[in-house]
Amino acid sequence: MKRALALALGLLVLVGVAVGYSTFAADRNEEATVERRPLDLTARGRLVFVDTNRAGGHRTVADTGLDTPAARVDSGLRCERFAVGAGTGVCLQTRGGPLPGTDALIVDANTNVKRRIELAGTPSRARVSASGNMVSWTVFVSGESYNKTGFSTWTGILDTRTDYTLINIEAIPLTVDGKPYHSPDVNYWGVTFAADDNRFYATVGTKGHTYLVEGDYANWEAHTIRDGVECPSLSPDGTRIAFKKRSGKSTWRLHVLDLATMRETPLAEHANVDDQAAWLDDNTVMYGRDRNIYAVPADGTGAPRLLVTKGASPTLLR
């Protein structure tokens, strides 16, 4: 009996060694496919994302081809969130020290830092308009997630044409259900820009509601258009918004909203997705989940497919 037990334990050790070596070998193989150099943020067809598997816990911006997702180029630029449009990128980088915070780094087409904007809080969301003219970010200034009671966010907008910067847009005149609205608990997050670089969409949270708002940058005003919408992402053709909709106390499911009909379509991803989705193309939504990047059809059909392992904050260069 003792000999049998010893033999079984020995086999388990051998299996564990084999599995461990296989994992180690796979990690080495994946590491061997990483090329380190500045990115070209104008290279159309490349998928830019945050690598979630860097040594020491530091996340860096990388890119890959959709046909060769295992081969990635690592820029070495450390970011928690990243977005890019027309060769202009925004990197949300945590800042250490006695008063930890976030730096919004504006980078050029080769990921060289052009400007640094010091913010409070921790990184949450980032977006750049298709033209590269408008940049936005969201940080948590209290609480660490949208599940926290009493969380607070700051969402800012930068016009790269003039360098005019709004660190927090919460003072924008807001209309709710057609009436001017004022409340101390107003929080904005998750901006997405239209092609005209003037109209934008975002979430505003107040009194237990999460409204989709449409903003007018030139006239500096915003109004609600639908309740129950979080982290909007406007489609490339400007007709639909991908968003996360609360499905439980601490869970969300991805949906797409048709702006002409206001019809909502739940997507075929049934797992919890706490992310501001992006668009791979006019027919496909992509998003981060469990430290990987997935894609799913925007019409509610099909099934999720894995795009990139160990990645987040995806943007397809167009």
Rank of each mutant, 00 (worst) to 15 (best):
S129A: 10
Q276W: 10
T239V: 11
D258C: 00
V50P: 08
E35D: 13
K114W: 09
T210G: 03
E144Q: 11
V34A: 05
V139A: 10
S124H: 14
L39H: 01
R246M: 09
V135K: 01
T64Q: 02
R305C: 02
R240H: 14
P100Y: 02
V113D: 04
L166I: 13
N168S: 14
C79M: 01
R246T: 05
A70W: 03
Y188H: 10
A4I: 15
G178E: 06
D27L: 08
L166G: 09
P266T: 14
A130V: 02
T153Y: 06
P232G: 06
S145G: 07
T42N: 10
V17M: 01
F24E: 14
T210K: 09
S142V: 00
E80W: 03
S131C: 08
G132W: 00
D282Y: 03
F243Y: 14
L105G: 02
G302P: 01
S313L: 08
T149V: 13
D299S: 07
A195D: 13
V34W: 03
N219P: 02
Q93M: 09
A312Y: 00
A71E: 09
A26F: 08
P38Y: 00
T122Q: 05
V17E: 01
Y217S: 08
W189I: 08
T94A: 13
M262Q: 15
V204C: 10
A303K: 15
R240I: 12
T155N: 10
E221Q: 12
K148Y: 09
D177T: 06
N187G: 00
V15N: 14
W252Q: 11
T111K: 04
G150E: 12
T251F: 07
T33K: 12
I169H: 11
T33V: 03
V90K: 00
L166R: 15
A171H: 14
M134N: 04
V273T: 11
L166A: 15
K114R: 15
T153R: 03
G45N: 01
V17I: 11
T265F: 00
V34T: 10
D258H: 03
A298T: 01
D290E: 13
D40M: 10
R81F: 04
N112E: 08
G228A: 13
R59W: 09
G76S: 02
E118N: 02
A55H: 05
T94S: 10
D67N: 12
L9P: 02
E230P: 08
L11P: 08
L267V: 07
R78D: 09
A25M: 10
P266H: 03
W189H: 11
A195S: 15
K249V: 12
G156W: 07
F82D: 01
S124P: 08
V176R: 12
T68N: 12
L267I: 06
K244C: 12
L47K: 05
E35G: 06
R161I: 05
R161M: 10
L317G: 02
L41W: 00
